[in-house]
């Protein structure tokens, strides 16, 4: 072959290649891995749910006990999420804005609910809040019962949801220059106005993302809740536990129906998160 022709051929072949090698291989592996680990179990669930008769669906969703469990899960997950938004923002603010001895240690503590096995968290919380536990006895004096009530579930879900809010808000706060607050002050804004009109709108997308993540996690949380909730059917029985109960009663179709419903809720939440992130990005400074 003529040397020039060879050189041209070489450039042509190179033209479409990225500098990073192995795109084809890594993409192939990524797709395979995601399919195996994530999509396949979901598809199996969807297939199984599709084969369930309308009767079974109606029977399961019509049952008061199942409805109560689903409603309880949604409600407690939502309340725990809201609590975490308020206090998660406070924790993130303190960790980002102030320097004090032990700050890094405190920062590490935030991840504890991530790292702790949920069953351990559940036992610890139950012991703490039981009528003769440290906090439970104090609450008892005030006439508040925590363990085996809805309040107990909310406590457990708040515990496991906190890191989601803190960790999503922290980088956004870090991103907010002190100059921005100085600018607001020099323009005559009070500290409250600076918080309300400058800081809060800035962190709102992150807060919503954090809330949604905490909510989604709380919706499916099982380990830390079962001990503290007491699992009274119709009262403190959460949706994941309802699935367990159905399985134990060999009512596989019923379990699948509840599971599929939770899957749908999770997917909706996922879309909301993605939408919010896109919305947040669009408003970011280039």
């Amino acid at each position: 072959m003529h040397p020039t022709a060879y050189a041209v051929g070489l450039t042509m072949a190179r033209k479409h290649k990225s500098v990073l090698p192995g795109f084809g291989l890594s993409l192939g592996f990524t797709l395979f891995y995601l399919s195996l680990a994530v999509l396949l179990p979901m598809a199996a669930l969807a297939l199984k749910a599709a084969s369930v008769s309308l009767d079974d669906i109606g029977r399961t969703l019509g049952s008061e006990r199942v409805q109560a469990a689903l409603w309880l899960s949604l409600r407690t997950a939502f309340i725990a999420g809201v609590i975490n938004v308020v206090f998660g923002l406070l924790v993130a603010w303190v960790l980002e804005r102030y320097n004090f001895p032990g700050r890094r240690l405190l920062d590490a503590f935030v991840d504890l609910p991530f790292a702790l096995p949920t069953a351990v968290a559940g036992i610890a919380l139950t012991a703490l809040y039981s009528p003769n536990g440290w906090l439970g006895s104090i609450a008892g004096i005030a006439g508040i019962k925590v363990v085996y009530t809805e309040l107990g579930i909310i406590v457990a879900l708040t515990f496991i949801g906190l890191p989601f809010v803190v960790r999503t808000v922290q980088p956004v706060l870090q991103d907010l220059d002190a100059e921005i607050e100085e600018a607001a002050a020099s323009l005559g804004a009070t500290p409250y106005q600076t918080f309300r009109y400058i800081i809060l709108p800035h962190v709102t997308p992150a807060l919503i993302t954090g809330f949604t993540l905490a909510f989604a996690r709380a919706l499916g949380e099982y380990g830390s809740v079962v001990f503290i909730s007491g699992n009274l059917p119709g009262k403190t029985e959460i949706a994941p536990l309802a699935i367990m109960t159905k399985l134990e009663q060999y009512d596989y179709n019923g379990a699948v129906v509840i599971a599929a419903l939770l899957l749908v809720v999770s997917l909706i939440i996922l879309f909301i998160i993605n939408g919010l992130q896109a919305w947040g990005r669009k408003r970011k400074l280039a």
Binding site: D177, I180, A183, S186, P201, H202
Partner: peptide
């Protein structure tokens, strides 16, 4: 107080409110 000083301050990196 800085809020009552009526000082117009322009920062090097603009410090604009990016969500507005």
């Amino acid at each position: 107080d800085i809020r009552d000083r009526r000082v117009g301050f322009v920062f090097q990196h603009y410090a604009l409110f990016r969500h507005m």
